[in-house]
Design a protein around this nucleic acid. Structure first.
Lengths: 341, 341
DNA sequence: TTGTATGCGTTATCAG
DNA sequence: CTGATAACGCATACAA
């Protein structure tokens, strides 16, 4: 196994190049403040020794980590992937590193992960949605960690948010559904408990029904986790209702994909016999058949703007502004008029 | 804005509860070593002050971070999502935290991220595939950071790997394709440059052709990035070859989904006119139509076993064993006999 | 059982 | 332009 020689430190580099640790540190952090000849010598030593600064020590000394934390509900499907990838790319460009954790939609896990990230010296935090206990926000306040909410938009809430109006977006889609003539509406929603995006999407549908003179109580609603399988099961249940819904609005594309699969299995043709809609416009939406009529969310744009805003907050250049991202309906074919009675 | 009161430290807790910092530290790390009455008092103070240990300081003092780093090529599609989620869950159960970065399939970015994670004191690293410069491994060796490769299996390589034989798995699928009667075979592969999984999958096909007396040079091969769009483009190109391939084997399900979409667009029916196969068996595979005949990879099992092995390595309980995960063919309908000439 | 004292690897302040 | 040196917050060996 060879001798257990451990990683070189600033000190090692200092000795190797015959200067003080202070000078080595300067060479690395503000090269212009050290004369060229010594700088070259030092950097050479850094290279040959394979020196990497010890991050923990840097954080302790500088009280700054250039790290941003993000906690998303799940990595297991594509809902957050694209936006987060862009968020990370943008952070990297500005010299920040992203740490991601997923909470499995569990508030307790999320709370623990927030603590972990704060303890790790995260300079700022990205959270999904506003729905969490007040003490979590108090904790963040206390630790002076700037936070930003994404995938949701509500300018009246704290922390500031970069996202879209889930209720309005889903409401628009529902309006489109109703305008097409549907009267028996069903919805497969993600669990609304602790999930303000899911809640808002349901509200959007209810409100649209109300505005169009439909009885909002008549909405056949099933809540479930965001899995294809669950979407399929829920669709199956909905199809045995009477009167049978003529449209199944899904809380997101993943659930809609499950619904489509089940429809296929049951020999129910979409959209001829039943219409199905999604939400998010992830890759899936374009690939299933029929392709999904859904709400397009510009995830990349959201990720990019969130990164910029959060960095501005971390660097004290912004108090935190909320930014609204525009969504738009995408008609692809899974929504049509209801069949004649 | 209130006074800029900063986070409470061990010292604050010590004062508040009238003991030394050592005792507070013990209360937190080895509670059994401190008498109950004082422990209660201390923990109470911890609670009321909202104390969270400073991670950087812990790492420095203990030279241990309980952190595992993982660098995946991309978060932008589902290939790594499921396995990684399970990897993380397993780590958490054992008290470790996972830090994930994605390299965008860029070796330079990956190298930088490895340095970052090591500097952050990662106790161990999960890497995807073996293909990277020797100096990267030398660096890890030098810093004594145990590493494990996943999504690939080769017991003769270092670092040890937990994964599956990409060549063998794809070879098996190719055998099945050939047995079905296909002679004009095309393949849409992920870029093989710096990607040993993609390379191995191509090799698997070539070898199977060879073993069955087909000219391996006749394989119509297109390499591209892993995007649905790219799969569609490649499929389009392949369909204008003559003789036209009767089967398009794709390097993964994402590319296959793109191929299917394009086939639909071109009015080519699958599998009647052309067969299409995938690899990975991610959710997508079941949802497209026709559902994909593909290679099922037990991602969760792989993630779990990788986590266990890496933890064992980190804790000095294992020198690092390679573990082979079994894949299996899944016949779903996108592969059939070639059409009669 | 508890307290004291030291070191971990940087950064940053202050002299020289 | 460069060099001492004091923090930073915690864990731990050693003493009491």
């Amino acid at each position: 196994m060879g001798k257990t020689r451990s990683a070189p430190t600033l000190n090692d580099v200092a000795k190797a190049s015959g200067v003080s640790t202070a000078t080595v540190s300067r060479c690395l952090n503000s090269p212009e403040r050290v004369i060229e000849t010594t700088r070259k010598r030092v950097l050479q030593a850094v290279k040959t020794l394979g020196y990497t600064p010890n991050f923990a020590a840097q954080v302790m000394a500088a009280n700054r980590s250039f790290t941003i934390g993000a906690i998303i509900p799940t990595m297991d499907n594509a809902i957050f992937a694209r936006g987060l990838q862009e968020f990370q790319d943008q952070l990297r460009e500005s010299g920040y590193t992203l740490l991601v954790s997923s909470s499995a939609y569990d508030p307790e896990v999320e709370r623990e992960q927030i603590r972990t990230l704060v303890a790790r010296g995260a300079d700022g935090l990205l959270l999904i949605g506003h729905a969490r206990d007040a003490d979590v926000y108090a904790y963040l306040e206390r630790h002076q960690v700037p936070s930003l909410v994404a995938w949701s938009y509500d300018p009246h809430m704290h922390p500031p948010s970069v996202g879209f109006g889930n209720a309005a977006a889903m409401g628009e889609l529902a309006q489109s559904v109703i305008s097409a003539g549907h009267r028996h509406i069903a919805m497969i929603s993600g669990n609304t408990q602790g999930n303000d995006r899911a809640q808002a999407r349901v509200e959007g549908v209810l409100r649209a029904m109300d505005e169009n003179g439909l009885d909002a109580n008549s909405l056949a609603l099933i809540e479930t986790t965001y899995e294809i399988e669950k979407g399929a099961e829920a669709f199956d249940q909905l199809m045995s209702l009477s009167p049978r819904p003529t449209v199944v609005m899904c809380g997101n594309d993943v659930l809609a994909a499950g619904a489509l699969r089940q429809a296929d299995l049951m020999g129910i043709s979409v959209p001829e016999q039943v219409s199905v809609t999604g939400f998010d416009d992830i890759e899936l939406a374009e690939v299933v058949s029929p392709a999904l009529t859904t709400v397009h969310v510009p995830h990349r744009e959201m990720g990019r703007k969130a990164a910029r805003e959060l960095i501005a907050m971390v660097e004290g250049k912004s108090e935190g502004r909320s930014i609204c991202i525009d969504t738009r309906l995408v008609n692809r074919g899974s929504l049509a008029k209801p069949p004649r009675q």
